[in-house]
Simulated scan of single mutants.
Amino acid sequence: MAAANMKSVKLRIKSIQNTMQITRAMELVASSKLRRAKERAEASAPYFSALRQTLINIAGENTDYTSVYARENQSERHCYILIAGDRGMAGGYNANLFRTFEAESKGKDFVVLPLGKKAEDYVAQKKLSRLEGEKFLVATVHVSDCYAMARQICTLFRSGAFGHVSLVYTDFVSLMKQEPGTTCLLPLADFKDEACEISGKEGEEKKRAQNLILYEPSAEEVFDAIVPEYLAGLLYSAVASSLASEYAARRTAMEAATDNAGEMIDKLSLYYNRARQASITQEITEIVGGAEGSNG
């Protein structure tokens, strides 16, 4: 009985060792990919901030709401650009993002543009209304793809297919911290509250300077030209941040799994050695007892 138990423990140790090799390999792969993704995310972060600040300034200072991008839209339908991961084994990365999306979209009429295999699977599983278009893996999205998606979204927005556009993605804060959140993209009127809050903190000199902004030939033509470009830039920055967040989450999860596997192997090895020692002691005792019996 003891021998059979020792054999099962030994097989379990071997199985955990094989699993640990896989998790360690996945950790190394994620670490390798994370380096480049982190550099791209950090390089695009200032661009993202500058673009968003520009949109906020335009929303706060513009009084000519002739452009469809600037005025409040009558349609209550929302379009959510949902950027999730391409694979699992990343801890709570995808689950946290989907919870954020569900909380944001609750009770609203919406359509989803999913980016990433997990986002595609989530939309299909929940049977959500999907924006027609090409399917992308987050790791394969290029700047040109972002421009194509931005043009599609702007065209549908102008046609009245939906009245609000928001971005749901995971912000890469650090290697140990990734925060899922939602960012408003269109219309610019949705930025008014944030713009008022910021302008209330600014000095009078800066506000007077912003009030002198003129749009030539007209605000409508300027917005129609620059908003799709802004949208593409914001989208690309969000993709870069999401990809870095996914790799960081996977690296952390695989590191934790490797450590847990090591602890399990240590405990099982200790149990195996104790059982083996007890078995040897029992055999010696039986041999000694048999020898004493024969001598007697």
Rank of each mutant, 00 (worst) to 15 (best):
F162W: 01
L82H: 02
A291T: 15
G163Y: 03
E216Y: 11
K127V: 03
L243P: 04
E134N: 05
I58T: 08
G91H: 01
E104M: 14
E255C: 11
A195K: 06
A37Q: 00
G160T: 10
D121Y: 09
S174N: 00
T19L: 11
I13W: 02
S166H: 08
N57A: 15
A119Q: 01
R40T: 11
L28Q: 15
V29F: 02
N211Q: 14
S159W: 09
Y230E: 12
L128K: 07
A95R: 14
L188Y: 00
K177P: 01
A70G: 00
R274H: 10
L234D: 00
K38Q: 14
C79Q: 09
G203M: 02
E246G: 03
Y47Q: 12
M6F: 06
G85F: 00
S166A: 08
D266M: 05
I22D: 11
Q125W: 08
R274P: 09
E76M: 10
V168P: 06
N5T: 12
L175S: 12
V111E: 10
S105G: 04
Y147I: 13
A119C: 00
L185I: 04
A232Y: 04
L167Y: 05
E27H: 14
A84M: 08
P180A: 00
T23S: 05
L34S: 03
L55T: 06
M20A: 07
A84F: 06
T285G: 10
H164C: 06
Q152Y: 06
F191D: 06
A238F: 02
A253I: 01
L175Y: 13
V239R: 10
G289E: 14
H78T: 11
L212D: 12
K206W: 06
K117P: 03
F191R: 05
F157R: 07
E283M: 13
G116H: 00
Q277V: 11
S279K: 10
E286G: 03
A249Q: 07
T252C: 07
G163R: 04
Q53R: 15
N295D: 11
F98H: 02
I58G: 02
L212T: 12
R12N: 05
L11A: 14
A3R: 14
K10A: 15
P114G: 03
M264R: 15
A2H: 10
A257T: 07
P114H: 05
R151E: 08
R130L: 05
Y93H: 12
Y230N: 13
E255W: 09
L167S: 05
S75G: 02
L55G: 04
F172I: 04
A148V: 04
A37F: 01
R251M: 07
F162C: 03
E205V: 15
